[in-house]
């Protein structure tokens, strides 16, 4: 959700190396939880890049790393993958390794999914990334939780 941007961000991690400055990425590990408004990230390890004091990119790895957020229309979105590369500036999320994106209207599964949270554009599969599977719920059914 757009309003998440100007919400406080709490970061909680088992171990932290780096001070969130622009010079080098801060590495959080041993169980990381980042929340900001409706954004909720859980991962084993997170490499946070920041630019002029703001977090510009987060690379999360986990088995799997999980990213939950509410879309502008209020519908929940859950994304899971072994590696989630969330570029906050362009709002593009690149999930690789058993990637899974789930929304009430449907879910998607592939080895590689590139999803622009802003425009909704999505690309997945292709060039040796294995097949992509999508499941779209029938219109009149109540949304099930993610697969």
């Amino acid at each position: 959700r757009k309003s998440d941007r100007n919400k406080p961000m709490d970061i909680d991690a088992g171990h932290q190396v780096g001070m969130l400055d622009d010079s080098a990425p801060t590495v959080l590990s041993r169980g990381v939880a980042i929340t900001q408004g409706t954004l909720d990230i859980r991962a084993d390890r997170a490499d946070i890049h920041s630019r002029n004091g703001d977090i510009s990119r987060a690379v999360l790895t986990g088995a799997p790393a999980v990213l939950k957020q509410q879309m502008d229309d209020g519908s929940p979105m859950t994304a899971r993958a072994r590696k989630i590369d969330y570029d906050m500036a362009t709002e593009i999320v690149t999930l690789t390794g058993d990637a899974f994106v789930d929304q009430p209207r449907g879910s998607m599964k592939s080895q590689r999914i590139v999803y622009n949270m802003q425009s909704g554009r999505v690309e997945s599969g292709g060039n040796d990334a294995g097949r992509v599977q999508m499941r779209i719920q029938p219109r009149n059914q109540t949304p099930q939780d993610g697969g």
Partner: peptide
Amino acid sequence: ENQPTEIGGDALTGIYGEQSHL
């Protein structure tokens, strides 16, 4: 009409939840 639609393909591009090209 009250069954989910499963779609699969080698590669997918499109707008999530709207247009998708496989």
